[in-house]
Design a protein around this nucleic acid. Structure first.
Lengths: 208, 208, 208, 208
DNA sequence: AATGAATGAGCTTTCATTCAT
DNA sequence: TATGAATGAAAGCTCATTCAT
């Protein structure tokens, strides 16, 4: 047989139906990921739940990983949207208020889809380019450093870079742990209070 | 549906030879786990790398999970050994010194086999009885709470339970992140210093 | 393993294609079952002989047992078809004729696929729901009891239930043994003659 | 692939201890065979239950099959002993009494170890030299033919060879079925009675 | 574009058997 | 002789991916 010549370029999902299909796949994938975990998430399950044939699935996503990557990317975008919408609103207030504002952003971000977020953090293998989620850390660190540098004279830590790194990781990790193990402390605001105390005490001293 | 996964070793090695075999299996498993991650760790790879037949592997471990479980258990025991050996040495000193001592224990624990520890924390599925690693958190939380309760009059946080929970997670997460991303700050002691500042400021105020 | 060699161009419509696959699997399974016995019948052998990948096999049958079960079911259906088509035709004739008719049905049933039938009877593990074959015994017992009860006054056995049980097992077992060891007595009709003598003598006395 | 399967014992137990070991192995094998079926009977299970190392087991038996073969052989010997002890005692009596005596032998034989017998008949693969059990059929057929030929003038069946073949299979199969499905008819003697009726009616007519 | 049948490498696990001690 | 550690072929089965229709 003569070699097949591709005359038709691959169509992008520009049409309404294609968008719907992609949407259905991602929604199904997210649900299965949350319910069954990464390993038990198979492309066939996803296709079935999405009401799409496995062939169609592979027309839009070249691999299982690419589906998860798209989900991660979407989640990351959401997070960035939240962060961008909230940061910078509290300029000029007291340091405690700025810190609290940052923390509220973090909590809001973590709440976007906590179960899915958890799967990303805990189960998705650290292979390839996947965990672009974690540049959120970077973004938050930058924001925190900005706050810190706006009042350097008042701060205790000498190494601001290390300090903000420490704070970012503290806040994200504690929020994550609380989300998973003690969600009630997220709801009643006691976590934000506690972390604010911690951060302020660390940065400027207990009396603030 | 899901058959019970055995996580207990199948039989005890009676002869010196079999002890060696078990050792070889665990060593190989640890290496592959670190190099390839949990999913790509297969029993056949382990057996091959251990220089042992797949049959021998299954004579000592009834499943892939049981091998990881043995590794986790061994790691946990090591951690407990370190903790037990170090805790309680600094009784009667200042709160700063007690906190620093605790932090040094944490760093030492995290250093035991950081790469393997990372795999346990990040990749090993949260199924069955596996992650007994995490009772280390518990143990550290107890130790911290003990320190806190020995001087309750001087402390700022009202909810000591939440406070120690926050501190434990802070310390473990930050140490972990630094270990992975900025090991130099572990070596030069700046991390311990920074975390001590953070903890003391949080607990009693900045002047201490 | 084996390089993909296409010997048959498949140009059938979708629906027919999978029917063919299922058919090929069942045919191959039956042959291997007969040739090698139940234990030596492996799913890979079946797939290979069927000219189908092991993956395809498992797309239609979830387990080795399910393949055998399908074969059993199909065989059972065939048997029932034969029985239903023949029973009741000889109503009103002499008891000897009724008995002979029944026996001819049995022989016909046993001949459907004697070798396969033998495997089912002798080798297929008595686990699960598998050997639904044996409700044929039940069905035949019912038919025989019906014949017996239509003329109870003339019969020698007092316990008709036990008598029909004895007769059914006699007829099936002897037919089976002859099929396996002395097929010539099946062909020449001497078996049916002999069993008719036996049954009639047993039921009503030798002179009939 | 499949190497020749040895079925003959490897060496003879000359010393008392060896005899005990062989005995222990056979006893264990019989129990496991009955409890778990042929497939689930593994050499390691047998060795463990016998309190013997797997190495020792293979010192006395060259293969799994040879153990089963020994068990079959032993069972066959027992059966022959019973048959030999009972046959010929009723010479000179009426045909009904002779038939009944034969049937009682059959029942006694089947009762020797019914569960084990059942495993032999139903599960043990028909490979190699194994099923020497079935020469019991032969032996019984011979005995029956002898009875028949001692009074040829009185018998209805013309083909005595086929008749005794039919009778042997009838008696063995029905007894087996009753043993498995209706043991109470074995205990109360009604089976022997019924089969005697059947055989006598078949051989000489109902009036006897 | 959509379909879904087909693929097959590769996984975990078992078990009869061998052989060094 | 006894032991039990070691062996490895082979089994059942999964699932990401391809491709003919």
């Amino acid at each position: 047989m003569a070699p097949k010549i591709r005359t038709k370029p691959r169509k992008r999902p520009l049409q309404a139906r294609s968008v719907e299909t992609v949407e259905a796949i991602l929604t199904a994938a997210a649900r299965i990921l949350v319910k069954d975990g990464y390993d038990a998430t198979t492309t066939n399950k996803i296709a079935t739940k999405a009401g799409v044939s496995i062939g169609s699935l592979y027309q839009y996503f070249p691999s299982k990983e690419s589906i998860v990557a798209a989900l991660v990317e979407r989640h990351r975008t959401e997070m960035h949207r939240v962060i961008a919408a909230r940061l910078g609103q509290h300029q000029g207030h007291s340091i405690r208020e700025n810190v609290r504002a940052l923390l509220e952003v973090v909590v809001e971000v973590k709440r976007l889809d906590p179960k899915l977020h958890r799967v990303f953090v805990e189960q998705v293998p650290r292979i390839g380019e996947l965990p672009a989620i974690f540049d959120v850390n970077q973004q938050l660190a930058v924001a925190i450093t900005a706050v810190l540098e706006s009042r350097p004279e008042k701060l205790r830590p000498k190494n601001l870079d290390l300090a903000s790194y420490v704070l970012v990781n503290t806040v994200l990790a504690v929020t994550h742990a609380v989300l998973v193990e003690r969600p009630e402390n997220l709801e009643d605001g006691s976590l934000v209070e506690e972390l604010t105390d911690l951060a302020v005490a660390y940065l400027v001293g207990a009396e603030h």
